[in-house]
């Protein structure tokens, strides 16, 4: 049987709501909260990594070439990366 996302009845609630599986918060895709997504213009990016440092979700990672991108499963679209990016390489674009 597939594991339930969360208990359906109160009887299924673990004592103290303890979660025994580590890393389970990754199952919750907070990216669905997003109203705007960050788009990188790599022609302007100087690979400084300031977006990576400031992302409060820790969802920005560096690719093999040294450019950065957000994991949209977890990016809430706060726009801090775009605000901090001083070469202006990140734009916030509305979600359709």
């Amino acid at each position: 049987m597939a594991e339930k996302k969360w208990p359906e009845t109160w009887q299924e609630v673990n004592p103290g709501c303890i979660v025994f599986r580590p890393g389970s918060s990754r199952d919750y895709h907070t990216g669905t909260w997003r109203a705007e997504r960050p788009i990188w213009d790599n022609s302007k990016c100087i690979k400084c990594g300031i977006c990576y440092l400031f992302c409060p979700e820790g969802c920005i990672s560096e690719d093999e070439e040294g450019y950065f991108a957000a994991d949209l499963n977890y990016c809430k679209g706060c726009g801090i990366c775009a605000h901090e990016c001083w070469p202006g390489a990140i734009k916030m674009v509305g979600e359709e």
Partner: peptide, 23 residues
């Protein structure tokens, strides 16, 4: 590892309260 004091979304909070009350 276990998680103590995790977030309880509206989908689970009521059941968590009932469980506390029963115990």
């Amino acid at each position: 590892p276990v998680t103590l004091g995790a977030l309880g979304l509206p989908d689970i909070y009521t059941e968590a309260c009932k469980s506390r009350e029963e115990v």
